[in-house]
Design a protein around this nucleic acid. Structure first.
Lengths: 223, 223
DNA sequence: CTTCGGTTTTAAGTAAGCTTAAAAATATTT
DNA sequence: AAATATTTTTAAGCTTACTTAAAACCGAAG
């Protein structure tokens, strides 16, 4: 196989994402919902993907699909490209973190290893993207961080915001409004059991309560 | 029609290029050879392009094709994108002028007006790309320059290199080797009638002879 | 171990964009 | 103007990636 089509690349990324988060083979339905397409289309593509001489996926009908070493490497490079372009868009072109996803989704398909490596260098070899997600290096290794969701902190504990689980515009814009950007220090003042909402104090002194939907999707590094 | 496919965009660009240089409708064969595809594929695409509600081309079978106002605007924006990305690749990522074409060819299809306008601004609103070709502004207007081919200079006349007609790697690398980059001043010392080769002297004092193939493809501004 | 519900695959059909080969239209020569 | 050459279009067929509908499969419950 010479080069992958954009569609094929998107399937690899989806499989990677699902396998990573669930730690088991990706189901046809999971891929379909991730890519907003039909299960039949996924079945069709999996058959074609696994038929390629260069094997990228392990696929047994009815048993789900996983990435091979090569497939994993390819998916990782797509993620590297996506996240580096996001850094470019935010740091250099001054877009905000809720605007960059769709553009990066297109840019990640640009084919040129040299281009992405030079971009990496130009950006100063960033280790994390604007949402706090780690950026794989040219060999596919990426920095792991011992991060937990804010909801896991107990009363009185503090953490620094290092990432988000949700990447929706709505959520990111909400965080902007509450000044809950990356790097902000948060202290848990009180946890309300009945709805799991959390009263927090930021390093700037502001205090307010956030829902469990928010605390479940904010990643912090415990201090 | 919502958005054009990459293939459709490439056809518009090809038609634009041909109509511009020949100042008459683009023939099926000319487009086919520009896009390295078959005449049948071109015919097929022209039929589909002209069938769109949003009219982009004027196409009469057997009579060639031209761009409508809208088609022209779209093609101009593609050229804007292509040339701005080339500036980015050369100025920011330090690629040389013979390496950037293929990458820019991909990048020009990234869909986001905001992105390209911010890139333009970040680059300092350049008026010319690394090959000396003018970059259309956001409204589609571009700076014209009274440039002529070096071959049009008479003995004793001088000019400054402002662009190239040929964009092949081989030609650009040759120019690099001869230190004939943009901005270099050239004086025509002698013209040899029998093969139209030209003896020149550069501002750095170097003297050598160039073939008519070179002097026909080097654009200069007379001084 | 059989039935039932959900999941997955197969089947059939569509659209874009390409191919080669044949037919039709246009241009050029004589 | 007729014959020939060139250009363009049509026709038939391929691949990718999708759709919907029908069939097959799998796992859990009775």
């Amino acid at each position: 196989m010479d080069q992958l089509s954009q569609a094929e690349e998107n399937y690899l990324k989806a499989i990677f994402k699902i396998c990573e988060s669930e730690d088991k083979p990706a189901s046809t339905n999971a891929i379909a919902s991730e890519l907003k397409t039909s299960a039949a289309a996924v079945s069709d593509m999996l058959k074609r993907l696994s038929a390629k001489e260069k094997d990228l996926v392990h696929y047994k009908p009815h048993r789900g699909v996983t990435l091979t070493k090569d497939g994993n490497q390819l998916a990782t490079m797509l993620i590297r490209k996506h996240r580096l372009w996001e850094v470019f868009l935010c740091d250099v072109l001054k877009f905000s973190w809720d605007e960059v996803h769709d553009m990066a989704e297109q840019l990640e398909h640009i084919r040129s290893e040299e281009l992405i490596n030079r971009l990496d260098e130009f950006l100063g070899n960033p280790k994390f993207d604007p949402h706090g997600d780690p950026i794989p290096d040219a060999d596919g290794n990426f920095t792991k961080r011992k991060q937990i969701v804010l909801a896991a902190l107990k009363e009185g504990e503090s953490g620094v915001v290092v990432g988000v689980q949700e990447h929706s515009s709505a959520f990111l814009q909400y965080l902007d409004k509450m000044e809950l950007g990356l790097g902000v220090q948060i202290k848990v003042i009180e946890i309300f059991e009945f709805d799991s909402s959390v009263k927090v104090r930021l390093s700037n002194g502001k205090e307010f309560t956030i829902s469990n939907k928010v605390s479940d999707n904010l990643l912090v590094q415990k201090q």
